[in-house]
């Protein structure tokens, strides 16, 4: 791995460890391997959003050309968000693509992702279904996002009606994630979700 990338990550690592956000348990960063190329990030769901009280894990891959090219980041924790793929965790964020600048750091990336959770951009979606739900049925979006936060990110909000519907599909032999995804995509309409799953 290129020398500059390693020395930068080492410095940034220290920076994150000392930052105020760590003290507030708002972001976290840890090494996965010894050569500073794979890291694990963690961000807290911002308050007053459906993601509040959730903890979201991120996979961070640092390329050899860092910091001249952005780190590759995706969500490991399943999340319901217009700019994040509910299936793969891929993120649509400009600074991780064309608007990356060498002066940005892993800390600012994590903070940017936190900001992205607080203010989604449905007009530039990663997950078109989530985005249209966000625009057309915001309340449904919020409930769904809270439910996902509860299911995957240790969020506190439980939705028994959602759980019942998921259980119905599981009884039909569908995996829990597939059931949740299909129901979420159809505004928790059991019939349409079933139709999609079995057609």
């Amino acid at each position: 791995m290129a020398n500059m990338a390693v020395s930068r990550i080492k410095r940034e690592f220290k920076e994150v460890l000392r930052s105020e956000e760590i003290a507030q348990c708002s972001i976290k960063l840890e090494l996965v391997n010894d050569c500073f190329t794979e890291l694990r990030g963690e961000i807290a769901g911002p308050p007053d959003t459906p993601y509040e009280f959730g903890t979201f894990l991120l996979e961070i891959h640092v390329p050899e050309t860092y910091p001249f090219n952005p780190p590759k980041v995706k969500f490991l924790t399943k999340i319901w968000h217009p700019n994040i793929s509910s299936v793969t965790g891929a993120i649509c964020l400009d600074i991780l693509k064309d608007n990356w600048a060498a002066a940005m750091t892993l800390r600012t990336v994590l903070l940017s992702l936190q900001a992205l959770l607080a203010s989604p951009e449905p007009d530039d979606p990663q997950d078109a279904v989530v985005a249209s739900q966000y625009k057309e049925n915001f309340e449904m979006f919020c409930r769904t996002a809270k439910h996902w936060t509860n299911s995957y990110a240790k969020g506190p909000h439980k939705f028994p009606d959602f759980d019942t519907k998921i259980q119905r599909l599981k009884d039909m032999g569908v995996s829990e994630f597939d059931a949740r995804a299909a129901l979420s995509r159809h505004n928790w309409d059991l019939n349409r979700a079933t139709e999609q799953l079995f057609s």
Partner: peptide, 15 residues
Amino acid sequence: EESTISQDSDSPPKK
């Protein structure tokens, strides 16, 4: 978001 994230003067850029 302003209640927590933006209290830090160097809040991250919004998308």
